[in-house]
Design a binder for these strands. Structure first.
Lengths: 399, 399
DNA sequence: GCTTAGAGTTCACTAGTTGGACATAGACGG
DNA sequence: CCGTCTATGTCCAACTAGTGAACTCTAAGC
């Protein structure tokens, strides 16, 4: 561990190599492992024995119709990881195993005005319930990923100013949950986790550079650069919601004028429809009405799309990602919003950057963040498989 | 070589580790190498002997006033690298060794209307002259870094539409120079190389995430993310010059309106001063007049700064770098332009991102790009090039 | 039932790192 | 001026871990 250039580190690397090969393929015989990792059969034999003794891997005596091939696969109960996502209206929890399979997933409404203590209590209960439901030993929990709808200070782990969960500012979500669950907890904001989730299981598979734009009550972006979440030195990268589109536009909650958020986020957009469509409209409702053909809602959504497109064009000029994935409630609007986004991008981004950009709706809907939290837990426990974008054979199980 | 998980690969990795440590520190004693690499003293002893026998490294019997420390440094004649920068008015060449020392540097004016062939010829001559001047064996040239003032297609290596060197579009600078010099040539655009140069030798030392903004006849940015140049999947990242500041602003050469470039680049800014200051003004001249107190020039430069600041604010919200370095002619204006930039950033960027950002003038002036080209050659060479001992074999005498 | 071929294991060998013992040479104190 | 001290670099035996080759095992095919 602390000998970075020694044989033991080599051995560790070879262990990981084998685990990764098995994970990518689902199950392999030892001979296949040897071929795909480049290790010799003898080494593979030793490593497989070690992994089997450690319980990481299972060897089923014979499964293929070959001669005497014993197929090696990740043992389902080698360990589990948990993803928890505090959204603005819901609390979601997912339980997965090390084979990248989702074993259980559940969500329940979360009252915005609930105190942080209540929220953590509820999360703890839900986590415990799901662990029991899957019937796995509590000891097997290897880590927890936690998503929060606001900026996290990387140094201190405290939740920064977040207008979404006002009572939660200054809490340390990771420590809270670690205290309750007794396992390592890794925390990140919802946009970053959404990006990770879509990259591993959703619309971002196979891509190494993507931006995940989440439009809900605010607008945020999660950036994946060369396969890794990019948070920036200060941890606040991806604040696409507050780039300036119009210096004399509406005043934004951040104090500036004409931020993208003032043209796209629910809290600024919904009032536009209040006089015509009533006051208790939600973004979800607007999207539904628009899909049903309501012209006012269609117009509003198209306008939102155009403005997001302007922001994405800036992002595209600066970072030139190969894919932009749209998440949040708004993504449900499909082409009604993607069309205008693409149009704006085409107009405002430099052609060479826009040409190779694909703008897609998220494939995971509201699950992107929990699954991203799951992926965070997996990657923080040293699973580098997630990051190399070659996850084709590992099919996530949807329950 | 082709055994990816064996001891020999470990040994190779340890060799590289040592070379890298020595290169970063300039010179180290064996004990220091052992501490900084985490390897044991015995291993370091063996590796140093091996490297010394291979000629990669030099051991000077005793240099520090210690007890009997032998300092290990990269042998000066292990190899040299060359940086070439085609600017819009100058051709610059620098020769450095593997210890990150610049051995010789020279620049000469380059006629904008010169054909690409002429340009490459001139570069070849200047390179040869400098190699001779340093007295190093031609065989020792390990690589060349090449800077061009325009976008390079990463796949084909062709120079894209560049209004600066019109006759050069479609050429393949790397291949041209490789053909002439017979060594590997790595090419990148001037903004990226400026970023690299400032990071390694200039205002960006010690920082892992920085943006280098180059304002000259156009506006471009080079991004360094976690210590590496970030080019984006399509190779066009950093096009800060064409983010939209005002949708109804002046028409830009890229076809859009209100791009940052239309408010900041020389070709758009200089005409503003033509009626008052004459027609053959250059950016350099404007800066000089501004420093001498000319109010019109001061105003123009401050306005440019404010607009650049808006662009930087967007960049800052999206990427949150810890440092922005201003390069190009405009950087000479110092606080006259940096003040307005900082002011704009403070106004338009979200506070948490702006707080930890420092905006500095480049420390290398016009040398940033050549030195960056040198750094590119060094980094692309990879430490293993040295270790193979194939340095001489890899360079077919192509004279 | 015999042959065969691929799968996995065992064993001796080799590469390479490590800890400890040892020699070395300047600094410091007497 | 000399002995002691201390950090440096080297050598050696021990240990870790991967490899090739020989070997065993099993089921398929004739």
């Amino acid at each position: 561990m602390e000998t970075p250039g020694s044989q033991s580190s080599l051995h560790r690397a070879n262990l990981e190599r084998v685990v990764r090969a098995v994970r990518l393929a689902g199950s392999l015989t030892q001979a296949e492992i040897a071929r795909s990792t480049g290790l010799s059969a003898a080494t593979v034999s030793n490593i497989v024995r070690e992994l089997k003794d450690g319980g990481t891997v299972e060897v089923t005596p014979t499964s293929a119709g070959g001669r005497r091939a014993r197929s090696v696969s990740l043992s389902g109960d080698a360990g589990i990881v948990i993803g928890v996502d505090f959204g603005h209206t819901h609390l979601r929890v997912a339980v997965g195993n090390l084979a990248h399979q989702v074993l259980a997933e559940e969500s329940e409404p979360l009252d915005v005005d609930a105190s942080s203590t209540q929220g953590f209590d509820r999360a703890e209960q839900l986590v415990n319930r799901l662990i029991e439901a899957t019937g796995v030993d509590r000891e097997k929990v290897a880590g927890v990923g936690l998503g929060v709808p606001g900026p996290i200070d990387l140094e201190s782990g405290t939740l920064g100013s977040s207008a979404i969960l006002p009572g939660w500012i200054g809490t340390r979500p990771a420590e809270e949950m670690r205290g309750r669950l007794g396992v390592p907890v890794h925390v990140d904001n919802d946009a970053n986790l959404g990006a990770l989730g879509e990259m591993v299981w959703g619309s971002g598979r196979g891509v190494r550079d993507l931006a995940y734009i989440k439009v809900a009550s605010g607008v945020g972006a999660g950036l994946v650069i060369e396969g890794k979440i990019y948070r920036g030195p200060g941890g606040t990268a991806g604040e696409i919601g507050h780039i300036t589109l119009d210096e004399s536009g509406p005043v934004c909650r951040c104090g500036n004028r004409g931020c993208l958020e003032t043209f796209a986020a629910a809290r600024y957009v919904l009032p536009l429809l209040q006089s015509s469509h009533g006051t208790d409209l939600t973004m979800e409702g607007v999207v539904r009405l628009a899909r049903d053909g309501d012209p006012g809602c269609r117009r509003v959504i198209a306008d939102v799309g155009r403005h997001i497109g302007s922001g994405v064009a800036n992002l595209c000029n600066l970072l030139n990602p190969s894919r932009v994935v749209l998440g949040g409630d708004l993504a449900e609007a499909g082409e009604l919003v993607l069309g205008p986004i693409r149009e704006s991008v085409g107009r405002y981004a430099i052609p060479s950057a826009a040409r190779q950009l694909s703008v897609l709706p998220g494939a995971l809907g509201g699950r992107a963040e929990v699954l991203g939290a799951l992926a965070l837990a997996l990657s923080e426990m040293g699973d580098s498989t997630l990051l190399d974008g070659t996850l084709t054979a590992a099919t996530p199980a949807f329950t």
